[in-house]
Write a protein that binds this DNA or RNA. Structure first.
Ligand code: ZN
Ligand code: ZN
Ligand code: ZN
Ligand code: ZN
Lengths: 148, 148
DNA sequence: GGTCCATCTGAGACACGGTATCAACTAGAC
DNA sequence: GTCTAGTTGATACCGTGTCTCAGATGGACC
């Protein structure tokens, strides 16, 4: 996965171009940082990585890029159990994440079955659902295996 | 609900006593503030309310009390869609909240059906689930009715 | 290639949520 | 009443995220 001389633009950049926003050098840098992350990452981690690999890249710019990527559905904010925030690169379709608290990697979870839960909320109480968020935390298969 | 001269200790206080922690004046004050809230509330709101009704009550103490109540399962943190935090008073059993984004009131949602979703995550990928969080946002029945 | 302007950037100041420290206080056990 | 561990409030502090604004730059148009 590392190495290789692939020139194919990372999907993140292609998406940027398609969205009709400027593809600038700083945004390219943030995109590179994001795709380099394995699993979820905090802004602090990204800022640290930036300081090493892209000195001169401003902190505010990182936050702005992350906001932009979020708007475009290329990245998603995760609310950690401790109240902090992290991010995951992901596809644009609606889904959720199962996050390994050990290695930080995340698997996408689809809604199969959740619709029922939501329908019940709606039906029983007359509540009209507009959004929902589901976050699953645990240990991924390989971390389970590694600790066995 | 307001007024009245009921002397029955609020459930929050009884729970404190049962948990074997000191029932202090400041904690009583925070408990009163919390039970006075209708729906979810932010720490900022609680601090403001405190300034009015319990001058001298320290900010840190409010945070500490909230932490304690959380530990005892009397209150729960909610992660708002905008990344902010709020709190809801609630029962100690595992459950989730359907939060009205209009009036702030919340209904408890139980897991009926969610177990399946989690089981599928586990089964398909070998992920071992330890915690999860589900938050549902929308408009409650009475707000729907009010806006019709 | 060169010109131009809306958009974007970086620096730094700022607002805010939450935590750490520490001397003074107090609940509650004896 | 005495005593002590647990608690409190003031205050300083830290981390996260936002705002402002002068200067830079992407990319459209020539
Ligand atoms: Zn893992
Ligand atoms: Zn969903
Ligand atoms: Zn409502
Ligand atoms: Zn649940």
């Amino acid at each position: 996965m590392s190495g290789g001389h692939g020139h194919s633009a990372p999907p993140l950049l292609t998406a940027l171009a398609n969205a009709g926003v400027r593809v600038t050098e700083p945004r390219r840098a943030v995109a590179a940082l994001v795709t380099a992350q394995d699993g979820h990452f905090t802004t602090a981690e990204l800022v640290t990585a930036a300081r090493a690999e892209h000195p001169g890249l401003g902190r505010a710019t990182i936050f702005r890029a992350l906001d932009l990527f979020t708007l475009l559905g290329l990245v998603e904010r995760v609310d950690l159990p401790d109240g902090g925030h992290a991010w995951v690169a992901c596809e644009t379709a609606h889904h959720h994440h199962a996050i390994c608290t050990r290695c930080g990697r995340s698997t996408e979870v689809d809604d199969h079955g959740l619709a029922e839960v939501l329908a019940e909320v709606a039906g029983r109480s007359g509540f009209r659902v507009t959004t929902h968020r589901l976050e699953v935390f645990g240990t991924c298969a390989s971390c389970v295996a590694a600790s066995a």
